[in-house]
Design a protein around this nucleic acid. Sequence first.
RNA 1: GGACCCGUGGUGUAGCGGCCCAACAUGCCAGCCUGUCACGCUGGAGAUCGCCGGUUCGAAUCCGGUCGGGUCCGCCA
Length: 625
Amino acid sequence: MPAPQPSLATPFRTHTCGQLRSADEGAEATLAGWVHRRRDHGQLIFLDVRDRHGITQVVVDRTDEPATHAAASRVRSEYVVSVRGMVARRLPGTENSRLPTGAIELRATELVVLNEAKTPPFYVNDPDAPIDETLRLKYRYLDIRREAMQQRLLLRSRLVQAIREVHHAEGFVEVETPTLIKSTPEGARDFIVPSRLQPGTVYALPQSPQQLKQILMVGGIDRYFQIARCYRDEDLRGDRQPEFTQLDLEMSFVDEAAVMDFVERMVVAVSRATTPERPIQATPFPRFTFEEAMERFGSDKPDVRFGMELVDLAPALVDGDGQPASGFRVFDEALAAGGRVMAIVAPGMGGATRREIDDLADRARRFGAKGLAWVAVEADGSMRSPIAKFLGDERAATIRERAGANKGDLILVVADAATITSDVLGRLRVELGARLGLADPDVLAYCWVHRFPMYQWDADAGRWDATHNPFSGVVPEDEALLVTTSGDVANPSPDDPAGRARALQYDVALNGWELGGGSVRIHRRELLERSFRLQGYTIARMRERFGAILEAFEYGAPPHGGIAIGIDRWAALLAYQSNIREVMAFPKTQSGADPMLEAPAPPEPEQYAELGLRFVGVHPTTAAE
RNA sequence: GGACCCGUGGUGUAGCGGCCCAACAUGCCAGCCUGUCACGCUGGAGAUCGCCGGUUCGAAUCCGGUCGGGUCCGCCA
């Protein structure tokens, strides 16, 4: 049962606008809120008065209450009013079943305009009206008055509340970490803040509290969490803002399974508390290794609400000796070069037009494929394919069988290097899954992906790069792989065994989106140094960038691990939104601007002076003058 | 850094070389209306079509640039 509602009565109101029911009939009540809509019938005026809690119909009769009626006739949309009156059951036949308060109305005896309002630039009272997003952001306070935004902000509030409750119940300590820190060793560009007290130096805003939470582990806070604001100065997307919020947590004396067990328990409890009506597809969450996820779904954040898994066609394309013999040169060359030929089957798309298929091929090319081969199985079982003449009927039938295509299905084939093949098909799978409505929009399908590669080769820099967090631990049986062919970690090459090492790294995905990721960390300094040096950090450079944490690790660092989960994305997914701006009160545009505050803005000249800074470029707005 | 899409009364759209001193809906203003709930009816005001330049006899419409917004690629462990 939900907790009893606190009284929201104030000197301005006895009840909220969503509170009164027929049981309150005969009571005197005062409501305060915004005028949602006014319906003026001459003798009779109806006012829908709205607050966050609902809408109550107020009725004013000229005959009974001439002064109040006069006041009501002057009122306009979005005026702030308080209305005193008698709660009355509505006349039979005039009840409004769409409103929780629809059985009653407030017969007004007194109406006070607390504040007038300009005519709003868009419809606050129409949930369906499309509104230009810049306009919404400029007048965000009006946008936030709209029911849909209120629901989303409420959902987010419940989400964060549930997170806090679960963590406190499980013995976590909520610790705040600073926002003015030193640059952390992460991939994104830092926002920097110049120091006035130490001219010429800067703080960095944290990209995440990563180092600090690990230091908290050294400090003995064995279970830490925080709803942490993070900052990354990278280009924006629908699901990416320059500042965003993470659930950041870290645990001591744990292994991978212990962290995943807790996170899974927490995620389930929080989901049930926040959106109890949405079914969770499977518990325990499916766990895939990175390799398996890429092989089956072509994604490290698979949407497991539907099948349409990738199929390796190679066995159907080789001769008795295992040599490529499909007859189609693109396939044979891909296999001969060590690549893959894989397929997905789009159910029911066998009748797709050439134009539709060409469109898919265009997408495939944009995703990085050289092309897209296809075999359509018509409703009568006959096959249609531009490469049929190369394959021959027998080979085509083998491919169809291997792919598991039924009559009326469309087989899409990509032949390329292994990573491109699975990536392209993975993206097409998501695209087609959406187009064909294969994924139940209500279901929450969480899953784990773990055992990511420790490193990926950075050809430009000539070194290994951490795929996720540079502090991630290595799978114990792969520890011996953290070596180079040259024997010197400072001299790496792309064929090093290190390329095969797997990290104790895990991501949690929800409906095809990466919700969060974490790892069990390296807590032994010796191993950490080896890992860093593989990534091209010299000892001096390491000290410079990771000095504090390296030193902390010399004073008894416990084994530890944790995760960070994107609150914005989680809230968005729970609210059926693909854009995180919809679950943020004051988000920024794609160019990082706040149209309401008009941020960013040039600093005052005095601020330059105080900070000892000089702007050497020409500011775009002053350049135009 | 790149690709694509959008920009027309307050709002959302239509118009895509001359029929347009721009249409529709809604909002706004005024009047009427005693049971509405997207109330209704009548009337009215409101736009130099984001901005600059070009093509043309003629540009909201075509072209170039620019600004703003969005989607995507790069980027974001």
